[in-house]
């Protein structure tokens, strides 16, 4: 099945904008980055597409059980450039998640490569599943 999905032609998906103008304090548009979230016994892994964001301009915040991702982009276009065709808009990225389990906040690992943010959130000891042995008497 993995190979099947790999060979598919990509479809155009418009960027989704954050709903509600009340959230913004700065002008400009704010988009929701698409994410993959996976989980195993020890970590929750989050991958987010944030094209155009430099590694220093991404902000990750975990407070209690809310994870906030935001990324800023700098304008790409030089001052002398005039638009001929605009198919996509650029703007900030913003997305919040409620984490289902306790996360060890000191050990969060973030990496931004080729416009993809990889966030590894280790689960806190208390949140890891413990196997309970059934004793036979």
């Amino acid at each position: 099945m993995a190979n099947e999905s790999q060979s598919r032609d990509m479809q155009v998906k418009g960027k989704q904008e954050v709903a509600g103008a009340a959230e913004q304090t700065r002008p400009g548009r704010v988009f929701i980055p698409p994410v993959d979230i996976s989980e195993d016994e020890n970590v929750i892994t989050l991958l987010a597409d944030m094209p155009g964001v430099a590694p220093n301009d991404v902000n990750i915040d975990v407070r209690e059980n809310t994870l906030t991702l935001s990324g800023e982009i700098k304008p790409f276009e030089g001052a002398e450039e005039t638009d001929i065709l605009v198919e996509y808009d650029t703007g900030q990225y913003y997305r919040q998640f409620t984490l289902p389990e306790l996360v060890d906040q000191d050990k969060i690992d973030a990496q931004l490569k080729d416009g993809v943010l990889t966030l590894v959130l280790p689960k806190a000891e208390a949140a890891k599943p413990k196997k309970i042995e059934i004793k036979n008497n």
């Binding site: 155009g52 450039e81 005039t82 638009d83 001929i84 198919e87 996509y88 080729d114 993809v116």
Partner: peptide
């Protein structure tokens, strides 16, 4: 896919596309 933005200066065309990953 991919969506592109095209701009021009006096000397160049600049074609941009978002291709994360």
């Amino acid at each position: 896919f991919p969506l592109v933005n095209l701009t021009e200066t006096k000397e160049n065309y600049m074609l941009r596309a978002e291709l994360p990953g």
